[in-house]
Write a protein that binds this DNA or RNA. Structure first.
Length: 493
RNA sequence: GGCGCGUUAUCCAAGAGGCUAGGAGCCGGUCUGCAAAACCGUUAACGUCGGUUCGAAUCCGACACGCGCCUCCA
């Protein structure tokens, strides 16, 4: 068992060797809290959630820090628009973020610091950078002098000349070099401010992450994550700040998740083609959204569309239906013992036993390979098929077959705890999906029930023509009748 | 323009030199009065052209197409 992770810095998968054996320090850029989160945030949240969970599962003592950037131009702009103060805006969207992430089933990080609680640390790093000649004061602002840091742009693999050629960076008279970036911004009247050696002001974007990561994880730590779009400039600037101030390596492994696309184009605030998490969750179950995110590798782009979400839901339903069937058998015949040795199992039973035996090692192998959740889901589906086959042919439950089924059920609990799936009782989840769909139909459930009764009567009288008529009538309204030995139920197509 | 990534069957999506990925769908079967649902089975692919190799989706090169970053972004 050896975890390998793709490091943006080297562009290769590397063996994960933590700084301190048995421990892992991870910092992930959270959000700037000025608006509701979109599904791009959902992806980043879910991706690093399973990375956090898997590191713990693999036995590491993980310290996971995810920040809130609660002071920034955008927050101030928003506050001005609404005629309120920045704190009101920040607190509102912190609460909204927490709510959205909780609905997506994210575990709480170890620490969730706020930038404004770390102004002291921020000032202290800036002072060090000035003392070391990496930063300079200019008319109440402080800027980082990128030319003093030879490794600048080493993460994104660019160079300063190239950047300037295509960039439309304004050569402000306050900056010495157009690529210099603000560490501290003097406050204008009416803006929030903190006291500093350079006058009243507020931190620039980037410096808060250097300060908070150092505070909780030290000068050097294992994993730093975030969306691909943060590679430049955010993470590049963090490196310049932290390594410039501390004179040692900042981060050992840089992990970046891919984008969410809409119609094969990047979704973003600036393009205006984004969906908020809460919009999406009105239509889709949170676990469906999570399952959709996990169905592709975290570094690949994923295309968000109704069709893809519908497919994700079908796939998840398949697993849940199998789990419900397992629960059904196990609740009526509680297993007496742990799994015993194979006693004349059928070939189908042997296949299931085989799948159960290999399950964890195959799951771990997938996750060890740069958190390949999509491949891990393949392992789950193969097990579902084997279990369904077994259930279909199982006549009576022997202690051994029950123990086998209980083992299989437990494997889904275990893998589900890493993937953040199957947290709901299967029967309940399936019921939830059904009633969510029922909310979208026109016809009243009482009317459906009445027609079902009428159809049952017609069928009892062998009047199949009338019976089929009713069936077609309901189908035209999106109501699918499900006949079974126990009677007729219905579902929304 | 610079840098980087991708192209896998009808669609989504893993895999990265020889080993059944998987899901949705199609089709076939079981069930059913007939269907549907469910379950089972089954099908098919590696952008194009060259090269390396006993063997290439997989490695190398060229080309085509698509995308991303270079400006706030997860």
């Amino acid at each position: 068992m050896a975890l390998r992770v793709y490091n943006t810095f080297t562009g290769e998968k590397e063996l994960f060797v933590p700084l301190t054996p048995g421990k892992a320090g991870m910092y992930v850029c959270g959000v700037t809290v000025y608006d509701y989160c979109h599904i791009g945030h959902a992806r980043a949240g879910v991706v690093f959630d399973i990375i956090f969970r898997y590191l713990k599962y693999a036995g590491y003592d993980v310290t996971y820090v995810r920040n809130y950037t609660d002071i920034d131009d955008k927050i101030i702009n928003r506050a001005n628009q609404e005629g309120t103060d920045y704190r009101t805006i920040a607190d509102r969207y912190i609460a909204a973020f927490d709510e959205d992430m909780a609905r997506l089933g994210l575990e709480k990080p170890t620490i969730e610091p706020k930038a404004t609680d770390h102004i002291g640390g921020i000032i202290s790093i800036i002072e060090t950078l000035i003392a070391k000649g990496h930063a300079y004061v200019s008319a109440g602002d402080v800027y980082y002098a990128v030319e003093t840091f030879p490794d600048y742009l080493k993460l994104s693999g660019r160079n300063l000349e190239e950047m300037q050629a295509g960039a439309r960076v304004e050569v402000g008279d306050k900056k010495r070099h157009p690529m210099d970036f603000a560490l501290w911004k003097g406050s204008k009247p009416g803006e929030p401010w903190w006291q500093s050696p350079w006058g009243d002001g507020r931190p620039g974007w980037h410096i808060e992450c250097s300060a908070m990561s150092m505070e909780f994880l030290g000068k050097t730590f294992d994993i730093h994550g975030g969306g691909k779009d943060l590679v430049f400039p955010h993470h590049e600037n963090e490196i310049a700040q932290s390594e410039g101030a501390n004179g040692c390596q900042f981060v050992r492994y840089w992990l970046h998740n891919g984008f969410v696309n809409i119609n094969a184009e990047k979704m973003s605030k600036s393009l205006g083609n984004f969906f908020t998490i809460r919009e999406v969750l009105k239509k889709y179950d949170p676990e469906t959204l999570r399952f959709f995110i996990l169905s592709a590798h975290y570094r690949s782009p994923i295309d968000f569309s109704d069709q893809n979400l519908d497919e994700a839901q079908s796939g998840l339903e398949r697993i849940y239906a199998c789990l419900a069937a397992l629960d059904d058998v196990l609740s009526t015949h509680p297993p007496l013992s742990e799994m015993t040795e194979a006693d004349n199992l059928s070939p189908v039973g042997q296949e299931l036993q085989e799948k159960a035996h290999q399950f964890i090692s195959r799951f771990v192998e997938s996750m060890d390979d740069d958190f390949n959740a999509a491949q891990a889901l393949g392992v789950l589906f193969e097990t579902v098929r084997a279990a369904n086959r077994f259930l279909a042919e199982m006549k009576d439950a022997t202690p051994h077959t029950l123990a086998l089924l209980a083992t299989v059920r437990q494997l889904f609990v275990e893998s589900g705890s890493v993937l953040g799936l199957f947290t709901t009782a299967p029967a309940l989840w399936l019921e939830g999906i059904k009633s969510a769909k029922a909310g979208q139909i026109e016809i009243a459930p009482e009317e459906i029930e009445r027609l079902i009764e009428e159809r049952a009567a017609a069928r009892a009288a062998k009047n199949f023509k009338r019976g089929d008529e009713i069936r077609d009538l309901l189908l035209a309204q999106g109501i699918q009748l499900l006949d079974s030995a126990q009677g007729t139920t219905w579902d929304v197509k």
